Simulated scan of single mutants.
Amino acid sequence: MRVLQPAQVLYDGDAPPILLPACDHYAGSEKLMRRSLALQRQLGPVFDVTLDCEDGAEVGHEAAHAEMAASLLDGSDNAHGRVGLRIHDFRHSAWRDDVRIVLQHARRAPAYITLPKVRGVAEAAQMCAYVETARCHAGIGRAIPIHVLIETHGALADAAAIAALPPVEALSFGLMDFVSAHHGAIPDSAMRSPGQFEHPLVMRAKLAIAAACHAHGKVPSHNVSTALRDPDAVADDARRARDQFGFTRMWSIHPEQVAPIVAAFAPHDDDIALATDILDAATRAGWGPIRHRDRLHDRASYRYYWSVLRRARRAGRPLPPRAADFFPAADDAQ
């Protein structure tokens, strides 16, 4: 008898929520970009690399920086196709050129384009529309996902509407810009731990972003940790972002932050084994309710345990042989 896979039965015909690598690593200069791509080749597609054409570009040399980023997208260093691009913000004269140059010069489209400092859903929608038009003019066959930075009052107010835009697949929290936008009303201690997890206005922003994403099947991405060379502190920030605020992804701005973030978001071996046992029993029960370790499980808990296995697979964690039957052979995103 053919076994139905979880993605076929647990979402009432809808696609499962978007799942991205748990770490989004930013690099601004060509040297750092190449170093980041080398690390990605070493570790595999368990984290994304974002080529930064905003803060990374020298003033007056924005076009050259975009051309350099395009060449890296095309190069052999982009081994897994998980390389994105951050462009300039809506008020900067170079943002359209960033998009046009990269999409016309790179034979390989970026995995996503990140929009910084949007002031509301109208700006986000306009930028999304321009990316789509530029994609069509460049002859790129697939739509380019959009990631939006939530770091202004207007963007936070419109977080749910931005998450609902079809091209958007992720919202990222820009903690430091958000705090500075309060002009001293939030202390600078809220730009780092533990204050970033304790100040009410910052907590409210994080919860609003996570809730907006989960309501629309998008990915909430947590802000950076300022502890550049303290892996334990980075891992603790990632765990708190995951467990207390519902984030499933986090920024990195130093190569030594990547591994702790990936590990912190990855399910543990015990969680993987439990999820496999429960879903294995569910398939044998035709996806009806089951009793496991004297607890009732049905499709609501099946969706949770299916997410455990999806996240484990995305993080490169080994899965039990039985779990392989739950995934389409050629689709890592399921």
Rank of each mutant, 00 (worst) to 15 (best):
I144V: 14
S301T: 15
R249M: 09
R142A: 14
A185M: 10
D298V: 04
Q244K: 14
P321T: 03
G75Q: 04
A15G: 06
D97E: 02
E198S: 08
D177Q: 08
A211Y: 04
E123N: 01
A333Y: 13
R303I: 08
V99F: 00
I113C: 07
A211F: 04
A205F: 00
R86P: 00
A125K: 09
E67R: 11
D270F: 05
G60L: 07
A57P: 09
A134D: 05
A333V: 04
C23K: 01
R192W: 12
S76P: 15
D271T: 10
D237P: 08
P116F: 02
P110K: 00
A164R: 12
L73W: 03
V308K: 02
C23E: 02
W95E: 01
Y305Q: 02
V49M: 06
A109Y: 06
G286M: 07
A227V: 05
V49Y: 00
Y130P: 04
R91T: 15
A38Q: 15
S307C: 04
M68T: 14
I253W: 08
F245K: 06
Q126H: 11
S189W: 13
A281I: 08
A111C: 01
E151L: 03
D158G: 04
G141W: 07
L39A: 10
A66L: 00
F47R: 01
L175M: 08
R317T: 02
R107S: 10
A263P: 00
A161M: 06
I209N: 02
T50P: 05
D232N: 13
A170R: 08
P220Q: 12
C213L: 11
H254T: 00
Y305V: 02
G154W: 05
R313K: 14
D77E: 15
S221C: 15
A138T: 12
A143T: 07
L103A: 01
V131M: 10
I18A: 11
E30Q: 15
Y130C: 07
D298R: 05
L20V: 05
S193D: 08
A238W: 11
V118T: 09
F90G: 03
P320D: 11
P16K: 11
P320K: 06
V3M: 13
P255H: 11
L296V: 13
S172Q: 09
H25R: 10
A164F: 04
R41P: 03
V102L: 00
Q257D: 04
I162K: 06
G28N: 14
A122S: 11
F326I: 03
D177G: 08
P6V: 02
F265W: 09
V9L: 02
E169N: 12
A282C: 09
G154Q: 00
G56P: 03
